[in-house]
Simulated assay, not measured.
Amino acid sequence: MNKEIMEVGRDKIAAIVKAWANAKKLVVFTGAGMSTESGLPDFRSARGLWKVGPESLATMAALRQQPDEFYFFYQWRIAKLWDVAPNQGHQALAALQQKGNMVIITQNVDGLHQRANAENVVELHGSLRTIRCLNCYAVYDSRELLPQYSTWEEDYRQGNYCYGDECLCSQCGGLLRPDVVLFGENLPDKAWEEAVKHSRNADFYVVLGSSLVVSPANYLPQLALQNGAKLLIINQEPTPLDSSATWVINSSIGSVLSAIKDKMFS
């Protein structure tokens, strides 16, 4: 047992494993902290690279009025996404899913849960793994949006970047957009309805790497608590629901999930 898990405590891990194993309806809710352990940067942390704030770039208005800024922003994020791999937390969660009835609800758009072979993943904010045409709605792998020359990031830094044909649909010539929820857009109805249904029915709810301050997603674990669910929060920083949780662990998600998995399968 590594040092981090020793600090968490064997008894706490054992109690969590017992509750996890006995859960009839287990829901796992994941946020950005789940993916930063893969080395995937939070796009807000790269603010110095953008000429304006990310909240202004991730909009339909930016696509129409500042297409160079919009497309570079998403090309950079897509390139980083495909350059990382699922971490031990993603792998452990996918393995634990084989033990019983688990649904994963994620705020993340990176698809790392699916790449770790997890199933039953509800993506609240869409996915950066795919892009679609605004005109004919054709869907493509998001890597199709990446420039085919190596100096595009340096060009942007030097003020010489212009978006190219990779940003146009090969079928109709329409503009492409990432399959994610942009600022000012509603969450997909189907994903939200599924997330609410699963959260209301949960008897054990696990929050991984979320600050629980982004609305309306932070409403979901509250639904589980209203149903009497046990709540486990694993996050590096405090959250507004810590006082309502059965267990709170401020530690590495990967280390804790790996310890839970090892105990579960021992």
Rank of each mutant, 00 (worst) to 15 (best):
K24M: 09
L26E: 04
L81N: 15
V17R: 07
K24G: 15
A79H: 13
T36C: 13
R47M: 13
K51Q: 12
Q98W: 00
G53Y: 07
R47E: 15
R64W: 08
G33V: 09
K25Y: 10
M34R: 09
R64L: 13
A15M: 07
G31F: 02
D68I: 07
A95K: 14
V27H: 04
A23L: 09
P41Y: 11
A32I: 07
E37Y: 06
I16H: 06
F72C: 06
Q65C: 04
A94I: 11
G48K: 14
R44S: 12
F43V: 13
F72E: 05
L49A: 10
Q107G: 07
L63G: 00
M34D: 10
A23W: 06
Q107M: 04
W76Y: 14
T59E: 02
D42A: 14
E7N: 08
L93V: 06
M60A: 10
I78H: 11
N22A: 15
K24S: 15
K51V: 02
L40D: 03
G9A: 01
G100N: 08
R77F: 11
S45L: 09
S38P: 07
Y71F: 15
Y74P: 04
L40F: 12
A21S: 15
T106A: 06
K24I: 02
E7F: 08
H90Q: 11
A46R: 11
L93S: 01
S38T: 13
S35A: 14
G39F: 08
A58P: 01
L57A: 07
A58R: 00
K12C: 01
P54K: 02
I13K: 01
A95G: 02
Q66E: 13
A21F: 02
Q65W: 08
W76G: 02
D42W: 06
V52G: 01
N108S: 12
I13A: 04
P67V: 07
K24C: 10
M34V: 11
G100C: 09
I16E: 02
E69A: 14
Q97M: 12
S38Y: 05
E55L: 03
A58N: 01
A19S: 14
G53A: 14
F73T: 06
P86Y: 10
T36V: 15
A95R: 13
I104E: 04
G31N: 07
W76T: 07
M34Q: 09
D68E: 12
L63M: 15
Q97T: 08
Q66L: 15
Q75G: 08
Q107H: 06
K99N: 14
W76R: 12
I105G: 06
A95P: 01
S56T: 03
V103S: 12
K18L: 10
F29P: 05
A92F: 01
A58Y: 05
I16T: 00
A58K: 02
A19F: 00
L57Q: 05
A46N: 10
